[in-house]
Design a protein around this nucleic acid. Structure first.
Length: 287
DNA sequence: AGGGCAACCTGGGGGC
DNA sequence: TGCCCCCAGGTTGCCC
């Protein structure tokens, strides 16, 4: 479940179902799921058993459980990760990677991940600019839904990047939480082509695209995020409804909802960018 | 130092 | 059926 709204849906579900519970057992069914935990499986399991979950947090596309001992379980869902709350005894998912059971004998928590780009690790917490974060993600910038997100400062930083605006929006050290879908949606809303040089945007344009990203993510969050298939679901396995509200992403050949021109798809970093050829004219030259 | 790109995986869908 | 190619919501490490 990749981008910010989908991860926030998962965070909220986890907060409801695992906050305050005590881990009684951890089963790692695929080593890749904890490859970022450098001390290995025995350490991961050993330190988690008996741990109490005291908070469920998120920054950008990362989420973590704060533990009573001052450490945290950091999780990234990658391209296909899911956090599922399942009653004990439900048949294991094909791509079940890690199972947590709790001392109350209630439902278990399952980390399921088809493509194994996601993963879990145990990390200590550090304070970065007044916010407590897992040290492993101290480099990840605040996301547009963070109350302390500074749109003016981020717009200023965006305008120093000598690259295309979309590349900069996807750089999680500049602003986090934005991925391929919400970058395209934000750029469509403000009428900017993805290849526009970031350092040639006006301050108004730079602030505008960041504000648009925040808006579109809030709207997506309200309807449970974007789900094209059963891979992107909340902790109860349910899909979100934002895919029907997308204006650009995935709409190649369909009419622009603003001007009627047909949305085009262009290759971008081994993936795709969708835009309206009239509302988002291509830049004439690189620089 | 900053920017660009291949690599890491599994599976679904389309063309032949 | 089957094979082969392309595509997918992300991040990283390693090039230049």
């Amino acid at each position: 479940m990749p981008e910010l709204p989908e991860v926030e849906v998962v965070r909220a579900g986890l907060e409801k179902h695992v906050l305050g519970r005590i881990v009684s057992s951890v089963e790692v069914l695929h080593p890749r799921a904890i490859r970022r935990h450098v001390l290995g499986e025995a350490d991961f399991v050993g330190r988690l058993v008996g741990a109490k979950i005291t908070a469920v947090c998120r920054r950008g596309k990362y989420l973590w459980f704060e533990l009573a001992d001052g450490t945290a379980v950091l999780a990234h869902l990658g391209m296909s990760g899911q956090m599922l709350i399942q009653p004990r005894g439900v048949v294991d998912e094909k791509h079940l990677r890690v199972r947590f059971r709790f001392s109350d004998d209630g439902p278990e928590l399952r980390f399921v991940d088809q493509r194994t780009f996601g993963g879990l690790s145990l990390t200590d917490l550090v304070e970065v600019e007044g916010t407590v974060l897992p040290s492993a993600i101290a480099h990840i910038a605040r996301d547009p839904l963070d109350p302390l997100f500074d749109v003016v400062a981020t717009a200023r930083a965006l305008r120093t990047r000598r690259t295309e605006v979309k590349r900069a929006l996807l750089d999680q050290t500049l602003v986090s939480g934005i991925g391929n879908i919400y970058a395209d949606e934000a750029l469509w809303r403000v009428g900017l082509h993805w290849a526009r040089p970031a350092d040639r945007l006006t301050a108004t344009q730079a602030r505008g695209v960041l504000a648009a990203a925040a808006e579109v993510m809030v709207e997506a969050l309200r309807v449970g995020g974007t789900s094209f298939d059963a891979l992107y679901v909340n902790v109860n396995g349910e899909s979100g409804y934002f895919s029907r509200s997308l204006d650009a992403y995935g709409r190649e050949g369909e009419p622009c909802r603003r001007c009627g021109s047909l949305i085009v798809r262009e290759a971008f970093t081994n993936r795709s960018s969708f835009s309206c050829p009239r509302c988002q004219p291509k830049p004439r030259s690189r620089r």
